[in-house]
Every structure is written in structure tokens, then in C-alpha cells.
């Protein structure tokens, strides 16, 4: 199976089955994501979106099938062997999952200090933490605890923690869930900025179609720091963005935005109408 755009596959699922106490969460899931690609994974609640990301990270072991990350089958690795692979992946958990006993600075520094494969010199940690927090526009929060921040700020701090080690693959689990529309837009803008500045491969799990629409059709303009339509200045719309729709743990659709919009499948069109903004 070759990736559609010819790029080297960063993540590949082959006939992956995951179940919990006999209840299937992912069924015969196969797909692959090429280097530099952005993949939007849409699905209703309990469709297996979060489990998919956790399986990609090796946090959940599949019952059968293989998961290749950077060409290595992670289903055969032990927990300690997985740490090396995980240091190349940044993950934004739902609700952020910041450590609430640590300050924002300690939270963002955590991957640099604890991931052995990164080998960040101690004297560089503070600088990189400040840089990551500046990236998400949270410069003044170093000494504060997660509980002292608003929901949107916590999400941004969690993005800083995910990108601080500059991983080539980023997984975002429902980055806009539970946020107001303006904050949700800010978060998606940050994700687009990270994708365009660092050229990372990005997987975004969401139940909001408009998040995928933004990622597919807008790009970050470094001159004014704003999002601009990807069509402007001769740029073509994001061809590197592909969509997937999950339903009850099964892959219902995989293709481009145009194909998604042309789909006549009742679940997809209902989903698109209901969540499309």
C-alpha cells in the first residue's frame, strides 16, 4: 500500500482490531498517512477516534493487526522500547491532560527533561520552554498552575507541551471540544501555524467539520501572523489534507474534501450538515 501523494508513510495501520472487554472499538482499520500530510479524522462520539490516536502512540495495544510508526511496527515493542518512538510524536490530549501538580513551565519542560531520546541539555530547557509558550502566546503564565488558567489557555499550554520537543508527527485529540467558537478558531489557527512553520505531519481528531475545513483551506502567513485562504497568491488549496470518517470503529470514508462533499452516504452527509458551520 503506497501513500496517495507518494510521500514516505509516517503512520500506517494494517487491519487493526482493538476491543475492550469484548466490545470492539476499532475494526479492521487500515490507512496510511504520508510525510507532511494533514489528516482530519471525523466521527461522532464513541466512534473510536481517541482510541485510534492512542493506538498510534502505543498507549493501547491492538488485539490484532500492525501499526507502523516511522516504518517500525510498534505493536511488538515493550513499554520501555516505545519511549523512543513516542519522543518523535507530540500528542494533545482531550482537555489537555496537563499535570495539575506542576506549573505551566514544568509541564512544558516535562518532555524535554524526561524523554531520554531527546537529550536536551539542561541549560537549553528554559529557552525552549519560553519559545514554545511564546508560540502559543502564553508568555506570562510560566509560574502559574493549570487550575489557574481558562480552558482555552490550558489547551494552548498543552499544545506548547506537545510541540516543545519539535516532533515530526503531531496528534490532536478533539482540540476544540468544549471551547467557545472564538477560542476554538484560535486553537485551530495554532495547529495550522505549527503545521506550516515546522512542516509536521498532523492528525486531527474532531467532531466539527469546520475544523477540517479550516485546516484544508487556510495557511499561516508568517508576514502578518494571520490565517489566509490557501488559494491566495497563487497557492493552491491544501492538497495534502485528507479526510477520514469513522463510524462505530470502522473506516467509512477516506479521501479529499471534494470527495467528502460529493459523498451521498447518509451518515457522512448528515454528519457534514449537522457539524458543518
Amino acid at each position: 500500500m503506497m501513500p496517495s501523494n507518494g510521500a514516505k508513510p509516517v503512520l500506517r495501520f494494517e487491519h487493526v482490531h482493538v476491543s475492550f472487554e469484548g466490545v470492539p472499538a476499532l475494526e479492521d482499520l487500515s490507512f496510511e498517512v504520508g510525510e507532511g500530510e494533514a489528516r482530519i479524522i471525523l466521527g461522532a462520539a464513541a466512534s473510536g477516534k481517541t482510541i485510534l490516536l492512542k493506538t498510534a502512540l502505543g498507549l493501547v495495544r491492538p488485539d490484532s493487526g500492525s501499526v507502523y510508526v516511522f516504518g517500525e511496527d510498534i505493536t511488538r515493542l515493550t513499554e520501555h522500547q516505545l519511549f523512543d518512538i513516542r519522543s518523535k510524536i507530540g500528542m494533545l490530549f482531550q482537555e489537555g491532560a496537563l499535570f495539575d501538580s506542576l506549573t505551566i513551565e514544568e509541564n512544558v519542560a516535562y518532555p524535554l527533561v524526561n524523554q531520554k531520546a531527546i537529550r536536551c541539555p539542561v541549560e537549553q530547557v528554559e529557552g525552549r520552554v519560553k519559545e514554545a509558550l511564546h508560540f502559543v502566546e502564553l508568555d506570562q503564565t510560566l509560574a502559574r498552575f493549570p487550575s489557574e488558567l481558562s480552558g482555552g489557555m490550558r489547551r494552548r499550554a498543552a499544545i506548547a507541551r506537545a510541540v516543545v520537543s519539535e516532533p515530526p508527527l503531531l496528534l490532536y485529540d478533539s482540540p476544540t471540544a468544549g471551547l467557545d467558537p472564538i477560542t476554538a478558531h484560535t486553537i485551530i489557527a495554532l495547529i495550522i501555524k505549527e503545521r506550516d512553520v515546522s512542516r509536521t505531519t498532523t492528525l486531527i481528531v474532531t467532531h466539527r467539520y469546520q475544523d477540517g475545513n479550516l485546516v484544508a483551506n487556510f495557511r499561516y502567513n508568517p508576514d502578518n501572523g494571520q490565517l489566509v485562504p490557501a488559494r491566495e497568491n497563487g497557492h493552491r488549496p491544501q492538497e495534502r489534507t485528507k479526510f477520514m470518517v469513522l463510524r462505530d470503529g470502522k473506516l467509512l470514508f477516506e479521501g479529499t474534501q471534494a470527495e467528502l462533499e460529493a459523498s451521498r452516504d447518509p451518515y457522512i452527509s448528515k454528519f457534514r450538515r449537522r457539524t458543518g458551520g
Binding site: 513499554e79 500528542m91 524523554q115
Partner: peptide
Amino acid sequence: VTEQIDAMRALGTD
């Protein structure tokens, strides 16, 4: 329940 244990594993800590 707030996924901090998963985050810990994801960030290189047992």
C-alpha cells in the same frame, strides 16, 4: 480519568 497517566506514558515516564 483526566488522561494524565496516558500523558505521562506519552512523555517518556513509566
